[in-house]
């Protein structure tokens, strides 16, 4: 009887408790449900982003590892799991991607020089080795992203294969670097012209004032103008390229070409470049061929330096007669 009484007393109490629980759960669900309307601005961009292409010049298996473990936060396209898209997790994911792409974005792979690409891979592998990457919180939610021993060996073997000391490798790298798509145009929009090494030399200079030596190359139009002795003014279409190297001085005092310093171009088009003395001016510096100058006005510097030879159509070089 006592038991029955107790049951009678407790039942209504339990029901209220359960109702309370349900209400709380419902409220929570409603909050979570409503929260889904509030999503990080950039998450949509990431989930709908164009799929980042495989990294050019990198073996398939290396690509797969990087895509699987790094691309979600280090490229402009992310393959998100369903739970990544739920608020508040989506905010965490979005901030990871934001920070990740700021540091390294594999989308920019093609615009990196070969040397830079190699540096990026070394940087990445060392982050993985130290356990910093992929982030442990990320692996917790995405266990498949963890890089296992075998995958690590694949990455290491690949990096060693492109880093062998010796001539063959550096030459191979050079061959690859001759694809110059990664070189940025000059600030005035002039595109880099990699062909100049196939042009004819119209002179050389020993610039003992600044320790450089130069070879001045001319394209076909300019060479034809030299042959016709028609270089004042130079005809439209003429291009002169002046490449400079440091002077490497041997023990006996003889000097040979050392480190590449820069290549600078003068492109004749009297109409297009009427405002800059009829020439398009451009310069790329260093092995990574950085476009020279901070603003488009860098050409005023070129012109003012060439001012003393205005009578020679602004050209310092006195060409060899290439008959």
């Amino acid at each position: 009887m006592a038991y029955k009484f107790a049951l009678c007393l407790t039942l209504p109490h339990n029901t209220t408790k359960m109702k309370k629980k349900t209400i709380i759960l419902l409220i929570l669900a409603a909050i979570v449900g409503l929260a889904q309307f509030i999503r990080p601005d950039n998450i949509k961009k990431y989930e709908n982003g164009v799929k980042t292409e495989d990294l050019a010049g990198v073996p398939k298996e290396v690509n797969e590892i990087l895509r699987n473990s790094c691309f979600n936060c280090h490229s402009s396209s992310s393959e998100l799991a369903w739970y990544d898209k739920i608020t508040p997790v989506s905010f965490l994911v979005a901030s990871h991607i934001q920070e990740g792409t700021e540091v390294l974005n594999f989308k920019d792979w093609m615009s990196m020089s070969i040397a830079k690409q190699k540096a990026v891979l070394y940087y990445s592998i060392n982050k993985i080795r130290s356990g910093e990457m992929p982030l442990s919180s990320y692996i917790l939610a995405h266990p498949a992203a963890k890089i296992n021993k075998n995958q690590m060996q694949v990455l290491e073997a690949y990096l060693l294969s492109i880093s062998a000391r010796g001539k063959t490798d550096s030459v191979k790298l050079k061959a690859l670097e001759r694809d110059h798509k990664w070189v940025k145009p000059a600030l005035n929009g002039i595109a880099y012209m990699p062909d100049y090494r196939n042009w004819k030399a119209i002179s050389t200079t020993d610039r003992f004032d600044n320790g450089t030596m130069r070879i001045i190359f001319a394209n076909e139009v300019a060479v034809a103008a030299i042959k016709a002795k028609n270089i004042n003014p130079w005809p439209d279409g003429s291009v002169l390229a002046k490449a400079a190297w440091t002077q490497e001085i041997a023990l006996d005092g003889s000097v040979s070409t050392g480190q590449f310093v820069q290549v600078e171009y003068m492109i004749k088009d009297s109409k297009k470049y009427a405002k800059t003395e009829g020439w398009g001016w451009a310069r790329w510096k260093g092995d990574d061929l950085r476009p020279y100058g901070k603003t488009i006005n860098f050409t005023t510097e070129c012109i003012s330096c060439h001012r003393p030879v205005r009578e020679n159509d602004n050209v310092f070089t006195i060409p060899l007669n290439l008959k």
């Binding site: 090494r197 050389t204 020993d206 070879i215 190297w245 006996d252 003889s254 000097v255």
Partner: peptide
């Protein structure tokens, strides 16, 4: 002079330069 220039050198002792 009409062929490809490959390299350049200077001999300051003799005041000469070569391509």
């Amino acid at each position: 002079l009409l062929l490809h220039p490959l390299s350049s050198s200077i001999n300051p002792n003799n005041n000469t330069m070569a391509t």
